[in-house]
Write a protein that binds this DNA or RNA. Structure first.
Length: 104
DNA sequence: AATTTGACAGCGA
DNA sequence: GTCGCTGCCAAAT
């Protein structure tokens, strides 16, 4: 089977599905792992159009801010992360403790 | 096949 | 330290 360009989206879904509970990743980080460090926006696009069965709630911005387009908004997004041991600083995730990487 | 959008990132003022 | 605009890559229409 020939690997099409779907590899990019396929990797994004793969990486996101590998995020352990209590951890979060940034769009840029995921995009970089997928092969395009500038495709952070595409990762978000896949989140909405791709496999929505993945823990996209653990995918946040580089600053720890939550996705503004997430169903329920940042408020709903935060409510989903709190029970997952995610620590919050104001309205953002504590990236100092939850920033995770697949290479770890 | 071409154009527009998209749940961001990085740099500048 | 804060706010805004531009740039980028890929997917969707």
């Amino acid at each position: 089977m020939a690997e099409t360009k779907d590899n990019f989206k396929n990797r994004v879904e793969s990486v996101v599905s590998q995020i352990p509970l209590g951890k979060v990743m940034t769009y840029g980080q995921i995009a970089a792992i997928c092969g395009s460090p500038r495709a952070a926006r595409i990762v978000g696009g896949i989140a909405h159009w791709g496999d929505k069965s993945l823990p996209w709630q653990r995918v946040v911005k580089v600053d720890g801010a939550l996705a503004e387009g997430f169903p329920g908004g940042v408020t709903g997004h935060r409510s989903v992360l709190e029970p997952e041991n995610i620590h919050f600083i104001g309205d953002k995730v504590d990236m100092k403790r939850h920033r995770w990487s697949t290479k770890w």
